[in-house]
Design a protein around this nucleic acid. Structure first.
Lengths: 239, 239
DNA sequence: CGCGGTGTTGAGACCTGTCAAGACGTGTGG
DNA sequence: CCACACGTCTTGACAGGTCTCAACACCGCG
């Protein structure tokens, strides 16, 4: 399922057959990960990166109090820790939310790409900058949007991101997070997360049951979220 | 004052004389910017990046309500919109908080660097990943830390960042933001920002008057903030 | 001298958190 | 097959943090 990864790239740029071959050749190994496993711990020295091929993962930072902030969600096609290539270690954990399939990409092969494929290097640099753009939008949510708006916003974002890789229905998608995990994305308590979801249901915007999210009124959801996808850089340009 | 930029890099990696020359050669022009000016607007097509040489700048996103979220603060030595090199446009504004001096770096010259200097490319890729790490820590602040802790955290972070470029005293630094701007960093109202600062003063942790921040009790401030600088990647490593 | 930006204070409202308890479904061991 | 533990979702009552609205002091500047 490296196709999801290629689809994500092709939404933003054109890559040559040689570049595609270089990407495919960068994966040294495929691995299966069970759900709810911390794959990478903050502080660990790293010499490979992880391409998510199937399932959902997350980046999370722990506080002393035991609370946790999920800083990003990952779906198939995402290079979950591409940034570890230059950072050499991460300051957050990487964990699986569902059973996952991942491709291991040794940093040495990424380094080779930076030596031999300047354009592909820029494409991957772009990808980490896209992650950062998503971070910034999350900061807006956490800082300025209400619990309701914040939640609506995430649902809108994931619709776009899943659509790119062909994993969205026209009216929704599979959303595997528990309310506890969702609350950790949004800086809320699980109790308030529950009440916020009920409010979204009450307003007729969504249905969420058995891990299936159905969006009943996308325009209204978009409006509540003040969602504008420009931060996802959906245009194909030479990077 | 490109020395600040070099100091910031040298804190994280070693660069060769040729690389330093390439960096210096990348700046095509020096410009003065007055305070409180929006230098770059969201959505604009960009073909150069901006190296901050003197003064403070910020990245900010506006909401329809007129509210604003500042997603990052920039001090001398920061490449404020290096990410525009691969993004081609930004989804946020870049604005000056004080009068600033900036160096203009045409994207064409950055592109040349990616063709000719793979290591330097990785260094700059690292720098944008460092920005993203700061974003993530900000998400933790916005999502999980109290107003008090959040504020303390920013003061701790800026102490480290300013110290790297030689702009911190042992007991503080010049902090030019108004309380309004500070509140926009922290997702608070200006009124509550004011009360939070008073509380920090009351606790004997800081003094803040005439744009001068004095840290009276760094260990206590660090503790209140749960500040751990590991996300700033202060180690010198080959990237 | 008046004005706008900045910092400060008070009172009350509202959003979100805390604590506690219970319902429900699933898996597991006796 | 049942009893039980556990995770997840839900609900209620109350507390607390932050927001809103309003007013005022101070200061630099035109």
């Amino acid at each position: 399922m490296i196709e999801a990864h290629l689809a994500k790239i092709r939404k933003r740029d054109v890559i040559s057959p040689e570049e595609e071959a270089a990407i495919r050749g960068a994966v040294s190994e495929i691995r299966e990960i069970p759900a709810d496993k911390v794959l990478i711990r903050a502080g660990q020295d790293l010499d490979n990166s992880t391409m998510l091929l199937d399932g959902w993962m997350a980046r999370a930072k722990d506080l002393r109090t035991g609370e946790r902030q999920i800083t990003e969600l990952h779906v198939p096609g995402d290079f979950v820790d591409l940034h570890s290539f230059t950072l050499k270690r991460l300051e957050h954990d990487i964990l699986s939310l569902t059973p996952c399939t991942v491709g291991i990409v040794p940093h040495e092969r990424l380094r080779k790409i930076t030596e031999d494929y300047p354009h592909l290097t820029r494409v991957y640099w772009f990808m980490t900058n896209l992650d950062a753009a998503i971070h910034r939008e999350r900061a807006v949510s956490l800082g300025r949007r209400s619990a309701l708006s914040r939640t609506a916003h995430l649902f809108c974002e994931m619709l776009v991101r899943l659509d790119i890789i062909g994993q969205a229905r026209s009216d929704g998608y599979e959303f595997p997070l528990t309310q506890q995990e969702l609350s950790e994305c949004h800086g809320l308590t699980a109790v308030h997360m529950n009440r916020t979801l009920q409010r979204l249901r009450q307003l007729g915007l969504i249905r969420l049951e058995d891990r299936q999210l159905t969006i009943l009124d996308l325009p209204a959801l978009t409006a509540v979220a003040e969602f504008n996808p420009s931060y996802l850089y959906l245009e194909q340009k030479s990077r």
